[in-house]
Write a protein that binds this DNA or RNA. Structure first.
Lengths: 361, 361
DNA sequence: TTGTAGGCGTTATCAC
DNA sequence: GTGATAACGCCTACAA
């Protein structure tokens, strides 16, 4: 781990100036003889260009940050899986930020954008506060936000359509003859929690079903918490025949609790999750879930950012990714060979790439 | 997105030299009056220090790279989830590299270490070639390898114990009265594939069971491939009563195929996976799996790297993480409340943190 | 074609 | 205490 060689070292070794070395290294027109000498010296010394020095000069790091609440969340991982190859193909490295659910940390990450160690950022805020908007307005590098921001925020924005998503699910349950459809939600002060709560209410109204507060339970977006919430719900209301869960983890918790309680799924209680993560297809029974296009949102975000990194100046763009209902065993006893129902008529085919494996020694 | 202010801008604004600005910013002893002026100017200008320039000077980027074959692989993700918080707590950012299964890409990543855009690296090579060893020997920054490298390789090394892991699984199956235990493996020219193949053979020998080539099927480490391999196997051999799968994805594929073939799991065929990913607990039936301590290996690797980044020079260290058999429904009809069997007597409690959730709008 | 020199934004070593 | 000034490693006018 000795001190690595620099262009100066090479210059001395080759008996030329550092300017010539730089030229050769960058493929600028140079005499053959010089090229040979420099290349030889570089080779012998095992020279590798210093990316930091180069960035200082060029003002480009070829790095992009991805900031989300939690690396362990399968929905974010689905985004990550799409973002990574897109950026890599364009010659960018991906820097990960896991902020926890702490708003201050998100602001901090946004602040650190100013340190210029990345050329841009993709961010999935859990809550969007005034402080967020202020930082976004003052950002010194392009930012793409996954999740809705108010009109006029000067960043590109990739949205899911929770509203339609929840409606697809509720319609599906209703069509199966379910009338006591409960909502198991996460905290309502989060962006997704709020959206899904409102959408649930709307969907019921559209179907002419009454909104019953008894049928709404707030927990958190985790499996254990979801289970607890469902237990509380069942304890309170006895005639629930369907659970609309605000994400897949909650839904898995629901399955755990229902099984323990001796309820059959879907005969006694049908269950729908959200995000359509890998866990949905693997669960027991397999889980009907609303895909909000995590993978596609990630891919689109990466593409928007790359575009912005190249061109620079357009108006802020907003892209909304349509949801899809993926029907599995938790709502229909005989899973109909994975039927898909698309939310927006004939929209972009959200190709959720199959999870790949690989051993580890 | 105007040109950001630098210490020079601040110096002018505050009417002092850049040296003083730097001192104030770094908390070095300075007169109160000067401190005030500089802070005020910095505040007004919204100054954020340039990480690149700072790195050039300090020769530290406060970044660490994590390189693996595929961001989509749950085993690597388990590592990632542990690595990230450890590094973050120590003030490091994580740069992700997904190399695909391509050896050349791994070498390339190792090469890029020389660009000094990170202070160190954690790598999980799928194969370990001569080229790998050469690059590792010449590395200009500390590297920790997850997966076995030959004695004498000058890097810290965190290993799983496939051998014991496979033995735990095979013993378990044998104890359940299974005698025709098949192996569904991934490519045998990979580190894990080779290790698991050899371990299977050993485990049978120890139990006095015959090694039957008919019972070994090679596919790949993915769900679909695993399914195909199992189909081929069942087609060839009719009396298989247990499947030892080289990872969880293969095992899930096996469950798919067995179900389609009308075989009951575990009554007709017992199934064991490896890596104990989130998918194992969520699957249908839930999957008995050998945990090779992905999470712990990640955490240990991060700690070794941090230690090396601070101190610098010790001898290369080797840490082996013990496997655990996690028994679930795919081998015992009545899952015994998730019984754990530890591979090494009373070893470090591999605390596999429960996957956390979170909604996304 | 090639070399000299200045600058990217910081930090750190000097004299003052 | 503070202010010039020299690095850090690279790129690039501009001159030769």
């Amino acid at each position: 781990m000795a001190q690595g060689p620099t262009i100066t070292t090479i210059a001395e070794r080759a008996g030329v100036s550092i300017a010539s070395v730089s030229r050769v290294l960058n493929g600028l027109p140079t005499r053959q003889e010089t090229v040979r000498k420099v290349m030889a010296a570089a080779e012998e010394l095992g020279y590798v260009r210093n990316a930091v020095a180069r960035s200082l000069k060029s003002r480009r790091t070829h790095q992009v940050a991805f900031a989300m609440a939690d690396v362990g969340n399968p929905a974010y991982l689905a985004m990550l899986r799409e973002i990574q190859p897109v950026l890599k193909a364009a010659g960018y490295r991906l820097v990960l930020h896991s902020t926890g659910a702490v708003v201050a940390d998100e602001i901090d990450v946004l602040h650190s954008l100013g340190e210029r160690y990345v050329d841009g950022m993709i961010m999935v805020p859990l809550r969007v506060t005034e402080a967020h908007l202020q930082m976004l307005g003052a950002a010194r590098a392009p930012v793409v936000v996954i999740g809705s921001v108010p009109e006029g925020t000067p960043v590109d924005n990739v949205r899911a359509d929770s509203r339609t998503g929840v409606r697809l699910a509720v319609d599906h349950l209703h069509a199966l003859g379910r009338c006591r459809i409960a909502l198991v939600n996460g905290p309502t002060d989060t962006v997704p929690g709020a959206a899904r709560g409102a959408a649930y209410r709307e969907a019921l109204a559209e179907l002419g079903l009454p909104y019953d507060e008894e049928l709404v339970e707030i927990g958190d977006f985790y499996r254990a918490e979801g289970g607890r919430a469902v237990a509380a719900l069942l304890n309170r209301v006895s005639d629930v025949d369907a659970l609309m869960c605000a994400n897949d983890l909650i839904a898995l918790g629901a399955l755990d609790v229902l099984r323990a309680a001796g309820k059959r799924v879907p005969e006694d209680v049908a269950v729908v999750g959200m995000d359509d993560t890998d866990l949905a297809a693997a669960s027991w029974p397999s889980l009907t879930s609303v895909s909000l296009g995590s993978a596609e949102r990630g891919r689109v975000a990466a593409e928007l950012l790359l575009d912005r990194l190249q061109d620079g100046e357009h108006e802020p763009r907003v892209v909304t990714v349509p949801p899809r209902l993926v029907v599995r065993a938790s709502t229909t006893p005989e899973p109909p060979a994975v039927r898909d129902v698309t939310g927006a008529a004939g929209q972009a085919a959200t190709q959720s790439r199959s999870t790949e494996g690989g051993g580890t020694s």
